[in-house]
Write a protein that binds this DNA or RNA. Structure first.
Lengths: 199, 199
DNA sequence: TACGTTGTGTACTGATCGGTAAAACTGTTT
DNA sequence: AAACAGTTTTACCGATCAGTACACAACGTA
């Protein structure tokens, strides 16, 4: 019999895909076992903590990806507008090729928010901090940049909800395009008047 | 023994709360039975189709509420800006008092998107249509109003994601406040230039 | 009072759940 | 080849799952 020996890291991408498709509760061990081509024994060998540890590992992997491809580029040196544009592009590519699901967003809306609260909080917090940095580098005052960063991240998450609801990947591109233009438009007035600040 | 005879309609609000808290998969029949104080016999008497029918009834109830309190006021006569402001206010109240969860949004991000696709699509489509009407009444050209309506609805859904992620209801208010100002700001220029339209 | 309808409580089913235990296999080291 | 750690298969556990069956209780009507 042809046995294939795997490592823990090899399974995480498939685990992530399974959680994205079925959710945490819907991804039963038998479903996971089939999608990873791994028996329960192997799964518990890699993840002694069971499903919780699998989900944690997946969230960590996603966090790492975002830190590397989104947050660090956002906070790095270079043209601020280009950095932000790169964020939008990367997000489009990432979510389009990952079932239009942000696991952190999906978990935040579900009962798993309780179990993974700290990781979820940190994911959005890190993202917001990096985007705030880029916006500040682009000339926005600290407080306004902070609020605008949250607006944009919320806009991206909302775009994913609507794109999924419509079962139409183009919706994501369209909504993100308009999100981009919102910044470009607002940034034409480098010093926002108080009428646009949060009371 | 004090038995309380209920009707099907009496249970739907509690069912909705249970689905919001635990999600579709997480809301097992025993959880539902406890939260509704109803035995399985009663539940299957009211909902012969089981959990699927319960969820469908809940989604229908939410749809009806939004049609009555959001969509119809949006599309009715009166000051367009006031109608839109009423939408924001109603949404704030509704979601703040409903665990910061929009069931349609949560289902859209989960595996239940498949099962309830039609209802989910219709919910957002009706909402977008009503909001588009209000925006057109406020002077926005049809196509721009249509796109802006989707922006706003996505913004609201995203705000719910972030508010849940932060476990902080005030975040919803803050994000919705800035969403409002975005419209107010953009509408100062009643005839948007092509630089703000979607390519 | 008697009767049908509707709602309720309890016990049960087979299937599946998450998780465990241990034998059998694999590749590496010695 | 012998020993070993890491991986995989298989069988199994008690608990819970969604759903069913059915006797029984409350109600409206007559």
């Amino acid at each position: 019999m042809a046995r294939v020996i795997k490592e823990r890291a090899d399974t995480i991408a498939q685990l992530a895909a399974t959680f994205r498709t079925y959710g945490f509760n819907g991804a039963s061990l038998s479903v996971i076992s089939e999608s990873t081509s791994l028996g329960k024994g192997s799964l518990y060998n890699f993840f002694p903590g069971g499903k919780d540890e699998m989900a944690e590992a997946v969230l960590d992997e996603v966090s790492d990806w975002f830190r590397l491809h989104i947050n660090e580029p956002l906070a790095a040196a270079g043209n601020p507008a280009a950095r932000i544009e790169a964020m939008f592009t990367s997000c489009e590519e990432y979510f389009s090729s990952h079932q239009l699901v942000c696991l952190f967003g999906a978990f935040a809306l579900s009962h798993e928010q309780k179990r993974f609260e700290a990781q979820i909080f940190r994911y959005f917090d890190d993202w917001a901090a990096a985007l705030t940095t880029a916006l500040q580098d682009g000339g926005w005052p600290r407080q306004e940049a902070n609020a605008l960063a949250l607006d944009i991240i919320a806009g991206i998450q909302g775009a994913l909800v609507i794109a999924r609801a419509r079962h139409n990947p183009c919706t994501l591109n369209a909504l993100l395009m308009r999100l981009r233009l919102t910044i470009a438009f607002e940034s034409r007035a480098p010093f926002p008047t108080e009428s646009r600040t949060l009371s």
